[in-house]
Amino acid sequence: MSESCEITLTVNGVRHQVSVEPRRTLADVLRIDLGLTGTHVGCEHGICGACTVLMDDQPVRACLVFGVQADGSSIRTVEGLAANGELTDLQQAFSRHHALQCGFCTPGFLMLAEGYLAETPAPDRVAVREMVSANLCRCTGYQGIVDAIVDVAEQRFHERPI
């Protein structure tokens, strides 16, 4: 076993210092060391997107980043979305549009969409379809996921401060 390294991660605004083996992926650091099991792990080779989190505001595959590589960065996970028990507009839209069935893929889609909408405030439907093709959902057929994201994009666009 190789030596553990001390790393610092800011996760959902909270600073954590953890000692991890270099081979531990960011997904496993979040799940095992920090107990944040909202980030799911499916394939561990970048295909399914269940592990998608925001690293310094950019969507990344947490299974393809080692925790040690993420040292010093700021991470957002699905646990950071709802505040005081109140779901965010995006989460509510997922619920309203039946954008989930089993829910395994949902944390990944939420973080992917969260990162995307921050960068692209008024996407069209085609662009949203293209973007969600990054992640796999075995249940919904994507229609509801696209509907939810388009809905939130429009809502946020109309409510934006001018």
């Binding site: 998608t52 969507p59 093709s133």
Partner: peptide
Amino acid sequence: GHTPIRTR
């Protein structure tokens, strides 16, 4: 690939 691959 896809956006989350291209960011890294």
